Computed example of a mutant assay.
Amino acid sequence: MIEFLTTLPDGLTQLAFWVLVVMSFVGSFITAALGIGGGALLLVFMATLMPPAAIIPVHGVVQLGSNAGRAAMLFRYLHRPALGGFVLGSVIGASLGGMVVVDLPPNAVQIGLGIFIIWSVLAKPPAWLTRLPWMAGGISSFLTMFFGATGVFVANYTKSFKLDRHAHVATHATLMTVQHALKVVIFGLLGFAFGAWAGVIIALIVAGLIGTYAGKLVLNRMSDVNFKRALDALLILISLRLIYQGVTG
């Protein structure tokens, strides 16, 4: 097993591998405790340490495992009315994203997402996030094919239901599980060789599950008020970073 995990694909060093393992733990801990942020954090390190062609598909598989584990641990808190339309929209959005051959300008996506999220945090979440869940699922799933970490977008859809902290994390994790599962299937159909990255993916998922469990213990000790304040602060910080990245190219 150790030999399998340490047989790394071309373009990934041993040091980079272990840094990613640590960041998978930290990212899942943050997401389980605060509801959002860990996926984007892991993506930043992947973008620095991994070959560009592997970043989005590998990130998708790791986030699928992490979110599925979090959703399972908190399944009894799931807000089921949030699923139906969102799932339908996600299928459409991810399928369209996979069919687009010309990449969207990444800086435009980052700036647009950042501005939208800050507006949603400081103002009342837009009504269409609950009235038109298929649109929330469709837009975020389309963007995730190019951008990778759209958890902050989905968090605003989840936030519009005004759930307590456990229900928010459980529902958000379930929605992200659906979205990442669709992304992985589409990248597989497009021919990405997941097998070469299997050992890395397993190690990152295991580290993420451990981080999820540790974060859940912290979540149980937080009040709803503190959770919402921490969530809003983290959303704004990530959004400002997205805008900065977009502006600087």
Rank of each mutant, 00 (worst) to 15 (best):
V61H: 09
R70H: 00
G98N: 05
N67C: 13
A72N: 08
L74H: 00
L83Y: 09
I55C: 05
A82H: 02
V91H: 13
I56Y: 08
H59E: 04
A71G: 06
A54Y: 09
G39F: 05
G89P: 02
L42D: 00
G89A: 07
I30Y: 01
A33H: 09
G37K: 01
A82Q: 02
T48N: 11
A32S: 12
I92E: 11
A53G: 15
P52H: 14
L78F: 13
S66Y: 04
G98W: 10
G38F: 11
G84T: 07
V44K: 05
A40G: 06
Y77H: 14
A47R: 15
A82F: 05
G89I: 04
L34V: 13
Q63P: 07
G93L: 09
A94Q: 09
G38Y: 02
G98P: 05
A72L: 15
M50R: 10
G97C: 12
F45N: 07
S95C: 15
M50A: 04
A72F: 15
L64V: 07
G84H: 13
M99P: 08
G37P: 08
P81I: 00
L41T: 11
Y77Q: 12
L74C: 01
L42W: 01
R70K: 06
R70N: 03
V87H: 14
G35Q: 01
R80G: 03
G98L: 01
M73I: 11
A54M: 02
I56N: 06
P52M: 07
I30M: 09
Q63L: 05
A68K: 08
R80D: 15
R80A: 13
F29A: 02
A53S: 15
A82S: 12
N67A: 03
R80V: 15
Q63S: 08
S66Q: 14
M46A: 10
P51I: 12
A32V: 00
L74D: 01
R80Q: 15
L41N: 05
V61M: 08
F86K: 01
Y77K: 09
L74I: 07
V62L: 04
G65H: 03
Y77I: 10
I92T: 15
A71F: 02
L88R: 12
I92L: 15
P81H: 13
T31N: 11
H59I: 00
P57C: 14
F29K: 05
G69K: 03
F86V: 03
F75T: 07
R76P: 09
A53Q: 13
F75M: 11
I30V: 13
L43V: 07
L78Y: 09
H59S: 04
I55S: 04
S90L: 12
G89N: 07
A47Q: 10
I36L: 12
L34D: 00
A94V: 10
G27F: 01
F29I: 04
A82Y: 10
L41P: 02
R76Y: 12
L96W: 14
V61P: 01
L43E: 06
H79W: 14
L41H: 10
M99K: 11
V61Y: 06
A53R: 14
F45K: 05
G84C: 13
A71T: 02
R70P: 02
G93W: 10
G65E: 01
G98Y: 09
M50H: 07
